[in-house]
């Protein structure tokens, strides 16, 4: 499903341009002092259709970066480039540099398996495995050989669930299927599953879009806590959410990165007309 979605979005076009030309260069400072990921001149194509057009951006370490923009603007596509999830789409091609520790993650010698263990991902639709809650969280440590013993694994699972704020709710029913939890709990289970692999960076693709306001609030709280330990990139449709959880916001439009800046600044005094139109609700 998500493959198709990404493809369709990449191919879609927003005709409501309001006669405003997008800038050739991104407005705002694309560079930061302590960058965890540096992207330089990234282009993404689905077959012949351009989904991301010459994008350069730094992702700041131990901060929450939010990607906002109208549907089909390429924010999810770009997010999926950061841990090479786009590899699963045959027609998708990525050019340019995405540097993690000064190493291009698209270099031929890079193996995606350890890369994805370092850069975890949480998806729009909670997708727990059809296994028990314990097995869902333990799966990552198991396949990567992270636990030395059974008790070590149990501790890892407990801690991951604690960090995801789910431990208290599920500690008595770890052997029950993860798919039996509520939507918000499932999404936190997916976050716990990601945390259990000890990633440095967590990518979140609209993690709250299918959740009710209470579950959303819990996830947002969680994101705030997690940002102390992890670098987080979140794609969101909700500008309020971006404003609440992120430190830095990037506004995408038709595959271009229009404007980037500190969240407060971007939402109070956007520099580009397109950004202003979007955040004031004039289109999107």
């Amino acid at each position: 499903m998500s493959h198709n979605k990404a493809q369709i979005r990449g191919a879609a076009s927003v005709d409501n341009f309001n006669g405003i030309e997008p800038p050739m260069d991104t407005v705002g400072n694309i560079r930061v002092n302590n960058a965890r990921i540096m992207c330089n001149n990234v282009f993404v194509h689905y077959s012949d259709k351009r989904a991301i057009d010459n994008l350069s951006l730094d992702i700041e370490a131990q901060k929450v970066t939010a990607f906002i923009g109208p549907s089909g603007c390429g924010k999810s596509t770009f997010l999926r480039c950061l841990n090479r999830m786009n590899d699963t789409i045959a027609t998708c091609s990525v050019t340019g540099e995405i540097l993690l520790d000064n190493q291009d993650i698209y270099a031929p010698e890079i193996d995606v398996v350890p890369l994805r263990a370092r850069i975890g991902m949480v998806f729009q639709k909670a997708n727990p495995f059809p296994k028990s809650i314990f097995d869902n969280v333990a799966y990552g440590p198991k396949i990567h050989g992270l636990a030395e013993s059974k008790s070590h694994l149990e501790n890892q699972v407990e801690e991951a669930l604690r960090r995801a704020g789910l431990w208290e709710e599920v500690k008595d029913r770890l052997d029950q299927p993860g798919t039996g939890l509520s939507g918000g709990q499932q999404q936190r289970l997916c976050i716990a599953r990601t945390i259990a692999v000890s990633p440095e960076i967590i990518l979140m693709d609209e993690p709250c879009s299918a959740l009710d306001p209470i579950a959303t609030a819990k996830i947002e709280e969680l994101i705030e806590e997690l940002s102390e330990k992890y670098t987080i990139v979140i794609v969101t449709h909700s500008m309020q959410q971006a404003a609440r959880v992120s430190h830095r916001t990037a506004y995408f439009h038709l595959g271009r990165l229009i404007e980037v800046g500190a969240t407060k600044e971007l939402f109070t005094s956007p520099h580009h007309k397109l950004t202003e139109n979007y955040i004031t609700g004039r289109f999107g």
Binding site: H3, A117, G120, N127, G140, I143
Partner: peptide, 27 residues
């Protein structure tokens, strides 16, 4: 088999083979 299951496994660093045999095949 829903692609989201494959995404979930790949997203935490399971290899193609692990994804196939641990998740796709049982389902």
């Amino acid at each position: 088999v829903p692609p989201s299951i494959r995404d979930g496994a790949l997203g935490i660093g399971a290899s193609k083979m692990q994804t196939t045999f641990h998740h796709v095949l049982p389902l």
